[in-house]
Simulated assay, not measured.
Amino acid sequence: MEDFILAFQSSAQKIQNLLKVSHTDYLSTTNSSGDNQLGIDVKADKIIEEELLSLNSVRGLCSEEKNEVIYKDYGSYFIAYDPLDGSSIISSNLSVGSIFGIYKEGFESKNIIAAAYVVYGPRLELVFANDVLSYFIYDGKSWKKQPPLKLNESGKINAPGGTQKNWSSKHKTLIDSFFQKGYRLRYSGGMVPDLHQILIKKGGLFSYPATSDAPNGKLRKLFEVFPFAFIYEKAGGGAIDGKNRLLELPINGIHDTSPCFFGSIEEINEVRRIYE
């Protein structure tokens, strides 16, 4: 896995430099999910594609910005990635990120063996999970390993995604119950910075439910949901779709979506209680 860590670190430094100088203009194209593409989305996607295809161990890769999987004739691992999660908030100068899932023998939840994400913010940071969870910060010259991240049994952060008018009454009850317990609202519109903050602060809940306008959820299983589910479980938390463990969900296409809840064990148990 060391080759993957080095590849993610290398592409992160290149994308961080790209973010400092690039405009946030939309192109005339959309990705497979129908989202308008920023020029910087496409550039970040190309940086990661070239970095990963240079690894002999990579057999195939797909991204949120691609319609199909790119395959090679050799290698053992399949990588799914979101090159620039939260790119729509770049113009507001908020933190954004990249997300990676590493799969063995094909793109299915049961095959994920490692995951990672990068945070592009005041600091450049990388979290990588396989058997253990590793945390790195780039100091401008080299990557420094930090103490591992671990969730407490519960926290005080509530990060609810989706437009409120499209929430179900059940989900409104859930979110209100956390606020009534004194949880703090922390939601930027970027999955990476919001989930990273919960990990750094050691507890809380991130939710992106099924909504009336997105009954199957909005976040993509391969690129976003499964990687963060893997990371949160390694950090001592949980990751479900409301009832079911995310890493047991089937996949019918590379751009499948799912409702998702990530958090500390007590918050996840409360989600189950209300949703069941």
Rank of each mutant, 00 (worst) to 15 (best):
A239H: 11
G162A: 11
S212K: 14
P259A: 09
C260P: 00
Q197N: 10
E224M: 12
S168Q: 09
L247K: 04
E233G: 04
P209Q: 03
L222N: 11
G203I: 09
A210C: 07
G155K: 04
N216S: 12
K218H: 12
L246E: 00
G242H: 02
I240P: 05
F206Q: 05
L246F: 02
D194W: 05
E248K: 13
D241S: 02
G236N: 00
K243A: 11
G242Y: 03
K243L: 12
L247V: 07
A235G: 12
N158W: 00
T211W: 02
Q164G: 13
P227L: 02
L195G: 10
K165W: 14
S177F: 04
I157D: 00
A239P: 04
G263I: 05
Y187H: 14
Q164D: 15
L249I: 12
N244S: 11
P250I: 08
K202G: 03
Q180N: 15
G263F: 10
S168A: 09
N252A: 08
D213E: 15
I198H: 03
K201F: 13
M191C: 12
D176P: 05
P160C: 06
H255S: 08
P193T: 07
T173G: 06
W167I: 05
Y183L: 09
F223K: 11
A210K: 05
S258Y: 02
F226K: 01
G263T: 13
V225E: 04
P160L: 11
A210I: 01
A235D: 10
A159E: 06
S207H: 06
V225F: 05
L199R: 02
K243R: 14
T211A: 06
M191P: 07
R184C: 12
K181Y: 04
F223G: 11
P209M: 04
K234P: 02
D213L: 15
G236E: 01
E224L: 12
G155F: 12
G161P: 03
T163N: 11
T173R: 14
I200Y: 09
K165L: 15
G182I: 12
D241E: 07
L205Y: 00
G236F: 00
G190I: 13
F261D: 10
P250G: 09
K172R: 15
K201N: 14
I157E: 01
G203D: 08
G182F: 10
P193K: 03
T211H: 08
K165A: 14
E224W: 01
L219A: 11
Q180I: 09
R245W: 11
F178Y: 11
R220F: 05
F178K: 01
F223T: 15
I198F: 07
Y187D: 04
T257M: 08
M191E: 15
